[in-house]
Design a binder for these strands. Structure first.
Length: 266
DNA sequence: AATGTTCGCAACCGCTTCCGG
DNA sequence: GCCGGAAGCGGTTGCGAACAT
């Protein structure tokens, strides 16, 4: 963390010219790094009026930012309950467990980690945990052993190739089509659940239909005609899962490796 | 010491979902 | 039931710091 300079010191990202296009309104909006003054204005506005109404909030706050940018800044940086500092070993374990269950549903995962933001977890996953899993021979997308994952991918390719020898289809285990894709997008149920692929049925013991349960925590529902599970149920479900001692497969030794949090050094 | 490369993270972008009219 | 605006989400980008050569 010492590497990071204060946000305010960061240079403007998109650059003045970046806002090209659109109308004058858009062009006049500031982009890039937030200054302490802007942070202050935003924090005061949210304290005064509460969260929400992001579209109009910047104007009322006297900010030349789009509402989206304000929301993001508040959610990821200014919120008072945000926990600073390195991800602890237990948090790391939890992230891996939840990712195994939920895939790249960062907001859902973040919801189980008080004080952590989806952006933070996403970044941490991409820069630390995925590499860590790979180093341990585990495919971070499917949570399967890399060899098995490769084999599965290969066999998929083979069969696909048989059908269409000219083309190399995208790896089926890649979850993210793009954006919030698939979560509620009832079309992508299977491919959107990389976690499920490597997920043993034992994980869902006690749940009549894990797909329904999982998705209830998300947004929509899989179009497989199952009743929704309320958030409380899902919550307890996750609690029970994350308390299991399943992570030996992943970080069985890292906890012993002193402090466990190698991200400090990473 | 200078230069190149890698890493970490804040912010942006595009898409989907939700919700009210 | 349809439509449009707002909010939310996940992927990607770009910058600066740290590290390696």
């Amino acid at each position: 963390m010492t590497r990071k300079q204060p946000a305010a010191a960061r240079q403007q990202r998109g650059g003045a010219g970046g806002a090209a296009g659109a109308g004058a309104t858009r062009a006049s909006l500031r982009r890039g790094a937030w200054t302490p003054e802007e942070d202050e204005l935003l924090a005061r506005a949210v304290a005064r009026e509460g969260e929400g109404q992001w579209r109009t909030l910047p104007r009322r706050a006297g900010l030349l930012r789009c509402g989206k940018s304000c929301r993001l800044r508040w959610m990821n940086y200014l919120r008072p309950d945000i926990k600073r500092g390195p991800i602890a070993a237990d948090e790391e374990d939890l992230i891996v467990r939840l990712h195994r269950l939920l895939g790249n549903r960062w907001s859902l995962i973040a919801g189980r980690l008080p004080g952590r933001t989806d952006n933070e977890i996403k970044n941490y996953w991409n820069s630390h945990l995925s590499k860590k899993l790979i180093k341990r021979g585990i495919d971070p997308r499917t949570h399967m052993p890399l060899a098995a994952a490769a084999a599965a991918s290969h066999s998929h390719r083979d069969s696909a190739a048989a059908a269409a020898p000219d083309k190399t289809p995208p790896p089926p285990e890649q979850p993210s089509s793009s954006s919030g894709a698939g979560v509620g997008g009832n079309d992508g149920g299977g491919s959107d659940f990389p976690a499920m692929m490597g997920l043993g049925a034992e994980v869902f013991e006690g749940l009549s239909d894990p797909f329904c349960a999982l998705d209830a925590a998300g947004r929509g529902g899989f179009d497989i005609g199952c009743p929704m599970v309320d958030d409380g149920t899902f919550s307890s479900f996750l609690d029970s899962l994350v308390s299991e001692n399943q992570l030996v497969d992943y970080f069985g030794d890292h906890k012993d490796a002193g402090g466990g949090n190698d991200q400090a050094g990473a």
